[in-house]
Every structure is written in C-alpha cells, then in structure tokens.
C-alpha cells in the first residue's frame, strides 16, 4: 500500500545532500557575487548572463546551422564523404577568428601599438593565410584521397 502523502515531499524536494551542496554553493557565489556586482551591477550581470545567452542562443545555433547547410549541400550532391574536408578547416579557422577577433578585426590596433610598441598590422593577414593553408591542405588531402580511390577501383568498373 503506497502512501503518497509520505512519498510526495521526498519527490518534490530531491536529494537532501544535493540540496545542502547547492545551498553551500549559492552562499559562496552570493558572497563573491555581491562583490562582483559592487560596481556597475547591471552591466556586470548583463555580461554574466548575456555570455551564456549569446553562446546558447546565438553562437551555437549559428555554427550548427552553418554545419547543417554544408552537410545538407554536400549530401544533396552525394558527396557526404567530403564533409570533414570542409568542416575541419572551417571549424579551426572559425575558432581562431572567434578567440582573436579583437586583434584580427583591428578594433584594438591603436591601443595594442601604444601599449606594447608592436605593430598591430598583420593579424588579419596571418589569419587569412592560416585559413588558406587549412582549406588548401584539406583540399590537397581530398584530391589525394580521390586519386587513390580512382586507382584502386578495379578496371572492370570502366
């Protein structure tokens, strides 16, 4: 005989250990959080929550959609085995652009030059060169693979 009145509170609360851990975590986060928010609290909170939202609702859907477009297009022309040869260089090049965007885009050129005494030119050029090498190398690998596949095909197939 089940007695829902006794079972129910347990189901609703969840594990007591988990609750304790979470309470301790929130207390520490709160202690640091009031200090984090002591300045321009709205902007800081916006950055904190915004970072997660921009990643989850903008960046991730964008690159997933781009990936889907590539896989879909290559699938439509029956070239699914080409997918990695596009995906890998695009992902690596995109990662470098994402991380080094301030330098590549030139938006911090003047400050970088003034602070470090170094030229800020060339980040865009180097990123483009790396991108060219990545896609070029990928294309070369694909060509080699296709040639090998052609050679290995039995003559009867012709």
């Amino acid at each position: 005989m089940r007695r829902p009145t006794l079972v129910r509170p347990h189901l609703v609360l969840g594990s007591p250990l988990q609750l304790l851990l979470l309470a301790a975590s929130f207390a520490l986060a709160g202690y640091a959080g009031v200090r984090l928010l002591a300045g321009d609290w709205f902007q800081v909170a916006l950055w904190f929550v915004g970072a997660a939202l921009v990643h989850d609702l903008v960046l991730l859907p964008l690159y997933a959609a781009a990936d889907r477009a590539v896989t879909g297009a290559l699938g439509a022309v029956r070239r699914r085995e080409w997918i990695p040869y596009v995906r890998v260089p695009a992902a690596l090049s995109g990662l470098l652009l994402l991380v080094w965007f301030p330098l590549i885009s030139g938006r911090v050129d003047e400050r970088y030059r003034l602070v470090s005494g170094l030229s800020a030119d060339g980040f865009l050029a180097r990123w483009l060169l790396i991108t060219a090498v990545l896609f070029g190398g990928s294309a070369l690998l694909l060509v080699l693979r296709l040639r090998r596949a052609t050679k290995q095909r039995p003559p009867a197939a012709h």
Binding site: A32, L36, A38, V108, Y112
Partner: peptide, 21 residues
C-alpha cells in the same frame, strides 16, 4: 590579453570575483 577593455569594470575585480562565483 588582447587589451580590449570593453568589459564593465576593472579586469582584476571582474576576473577575481567572477572566478569565485
């Protein structure tokens, strides 16, 4: 590290307290 100081406040404050949160 790219001297792009667009974040809202001192890097030391944000990165230190942010780390604890």
């Amino acid at each position: 590290v790219q001297v792009d100081y667009v974040f809202p406040g001192s890097f030391y404050t944000l990165h230190f307290y942010g780390a604890w949160v």
